[in-house]
Computed example of a mutant assay.
Amino acid sequence: MKDALRLFNVLSYVSPGLGGYDVAFAESLLNGFRKSGSALLTSLVNVKAPGMPADIKDLLRQKGYSVHKTICSLILALTGAASSSHAATLMESLANCDDSFFSAIHDRQNEIKPVAPVIAGHQHHAWFKVPSADNGTLWFTQPLLDSNLTILGYYLQTSNLEALNMGKYYYWGFILKESPEIVMTQLNHLSWSRADDEYYSQALIKDPGEHDWKKNPAAVGSIAPAKGSTEKLLMLSKSGNQTKLLCSIQGDVPPELLYTVRPDLAEEKRP
C-alpha cells in the first residue's frame, strides 16, 4: 500500500487530472505492471488491471510521452522491474539451489498466482502449493515464461534412504517444455557437466564438521555422498517430452541445514 500511495502522490503532482482517483487506482497500475513485466509505454495505456477507468486511459494518451515516461519510470522502480542490477529470474534463483529461489517466488507471486497456487511465508519467502508436501507435481494452468523458457509445472520429491546408509534426498524445481540443450543455452552463465543422460551444475559439498560449502567436481546424482557429508547440485534431465530442472540436497541433511536451503519446509512446520 505504501508503494501505491507514493505512486498516487506523484500521479497527482504530474497530472492534476488524475487527482480525483484514489490509491486503489494506483494499486491497480502497480499490479498491472507486476503482471506484465517490462511492458512500458503502450502497456501503460492498455494495461488490464482491475478498476482502470476508460477515461483514465484516454487521459494518459493525451498527456503524451513526457508524462508516460515519468509514470513508467516510477512504476518500474516501485515494482522492481528497473534496477542497475536486475532482479534474478525464477530460473536464475533456482540455479542457486538456496533460499533465494523462494524469495524470487515471493517477489513474483502476483504474476504466478493466476497459473499456480502460491503460499506466502513470514520471512520474505513463498512457495508453490503442491498436492503432496513431499512428493508430487503441480501442473500450471497455463505455461509461465521465464528466461525465455516455458515452465509447465513444479516438481517435488523426497526420498529417505537412511536404512541403506545413503542418507536423504530432496529434489525441487521446474518441469520445462524446452529440451535440455535449449535450457543450457538459455542458462549459459552456468558451467555444465554430463553424466550418462543427465547434466549437472553448481555442485557443492559440505564435509563433516565444516561450515562452508565448497566445490564438488566429483558429484554424481546417482552415487551417495560420503558418510556424514552433504551435497547440493543443480540437475538437468529429459523426462518424456519435457525437461526437469531440479535442485537436490542429499546425504546427511540435518534440519538446521535443510531449512537454510528449503525455507518452505521450515515455514510449513510453523504452528
Rank of each mutant, 00 (worst) to 15 (best):
D197Q: 10
K214S: 06
V183D: 05
D207A: 07
V183H: 03
L138H: 12
A219F: 02
Y171V: 04
L236N: 12
P217G: 08
A224Y: 07
P180Q: 10
L187G: 06
G153L: 06
T185N: 08
H189P: 10
W139T: 11
T230L: 02
I182L: 15
L234D: 15
R194L: 06
M166E: 09
Y171W: 02
Y155W: 04
D146F: 05
K215E: 10
W213L: 14
T150K: 06
Y155G: 10
E181L: 05
K214R: 13
L233A: 11
N160D: 10
N165K: 04
Q242M: 02
L234F: 13
L236H: 01
P180D: 13
L245Q: 09
Y171F: 05
H124S: 12
S229D: 03
P217K: 02
N148Y: 15
T141I: 12
K168A: 12
W192K: 12
A219P: 00
A163Y: 00
I205Q: 13
W127I: 09
A133M: 10
A195I: 11
A163Q: 02
T137Y: 02
P225M: 10
A195S: 09
Y169I: 08
C247Q: 08
F128L: 12
A224L: 15
P225A: 15
E198V: 14
E231N: 04
A133H: 04
L246Q: 15
H211G: 05
S229A: 07
A163S: 03
A226T: 11
L149S: 15
H211A: 09
G209S: 04
L161E: 14
L187Q: 14
K177Y: 01
W213A: 13
D134V: 15
D212P: 05
E198T: 09
S159C: 07
T137C: 05
G153P: 02
S239G: 01
S193H: 13
L245S: 09
E162F: 03
N241K: 07
N135E: 06
A226N: 10
T230M: 01
T141E: 08
N216G: 15
L149R: 04
E210I: 11
N160K: 11
S147F: 00
G240L: 14
D207Q: 09
Y199T: 12
K238C: 07
G240E: 15
K244G: 11
E231D: 10
T137W: 00
S237M: 01
G167P: 03
S193G: 10
L245H: 06
T185L: 14
T150C: 08
L190P: 05
R194W: 07
L176Y: 12
K177W: 01
G153E: 03
E231F: 11
K214M: 03
F128A: 08
S201W: 07
I175F: 01
E178G: 07
E210W: 03
K215Y: 01
T137I: 06
V130D: 00
G167E: 06
L246V: 12
N135T: 12
L156Q: 03
E198W: 05
D197Y: 04
K215F: 01
S248I: 04
L234Y: 09
E210P: 13
T158E: 13
L161R: 10
